[in-house]
Amino acid sequence: MKRYSRELTVAIALSALLVWLAIFAPHFFQPQPLLARLTAQVPVLVLTIGMSVVIISRQIDISVGSQFGVCAVVAGLTSAAGAPLSLALIAATLTGTAMGALNGFLVAWLGLPSIVVSLATMVTWAEVLRLFQQGRFINLPAGVQWFGFSQFVGQASLLFFALGLLGAMAYFLKNRTGGRHFYAVGSDSEAARLAGINPKGVTMLSFVLMGTLTGLAAFCNMVQSPQVDPKCGVGLEMKAIAAAVVGGIAVTGGRGGLWGAFFGLLLLATINPALTYMHIDAYWEKAIQGLVILLAVIADGLRTKRSAA
């Protein structure tokens, strides 16, 4: 029971918010906007999965927002050139993987701190993208949005895909040896090495996975709209990190799970629409987001202090 206490806290907070909305703002649960809101979170969820793995391995990647923008533009240009969607998907994931591998190489093999490496790659990719695309939207051909199917089918398939990915990754991390390696390296890399795990390889893998998922997320974002906005990735890294952390994944590595991150994401993603539905002015949004993060981490701190005492 205690192992899941953080997941439980976040899930309870989320349920409380939802119940409150159900009573005071029932419009919140209208099917169309609800579905649209959930689908819009699919790219962030895919990123959060990757970010969780990176944080569990005791690293961090703040370049994913910039990477996301680059991947989105690559996918967009591929599609706009008339290539089939599968090719756009491959192009986006390969681009993401390559950028992730660069981070991974610098962190795992050169031993540079990941926050600094990804800070440097963050500004670099953002500027490259700005110079290359100059903020111009890419208009996509018909047949890209919702894979060419109806809106409902498109939304449903994206949601199924994202939940499937979440379930599979959660199972893999929790129950398979390969998944436990991330935890082992994250909690004590030296001990992991002595236990026969290759910490460099595992760290590298976490960044490569992050990059691949970033490409995938950018693709999931592209198919929701007939245009690609080159600024679509700005600030996404903060959303993914906040979701993981509110969901109980420890920045000190080795602790937390994907379901917690999932609930964390849902909680944070519900706050903004809740303000609109409760007719609270938008300028409170950032303050409330900050408070939620602080409350989550304070709750954590008090619990560990109590259990230590």
């Binding site: 919140f28 629409p273 609109t276 007719h279």
Partner: peptide, 24 residues
């Protein structure tokens, strides 16, 4: 004028805010 929402100069956020505004 019932509400004013920021979109951080991003299309996706504008879309999300509009979805909420219409249904709320």
């Amino acid at each position: 004028l019932i509400d004013t929402k920021p979109c951080d100069d991003q299309k996706d956020k504008a879309q999300a805010e509009t979805t909420n505004l219409i249904s709320a």
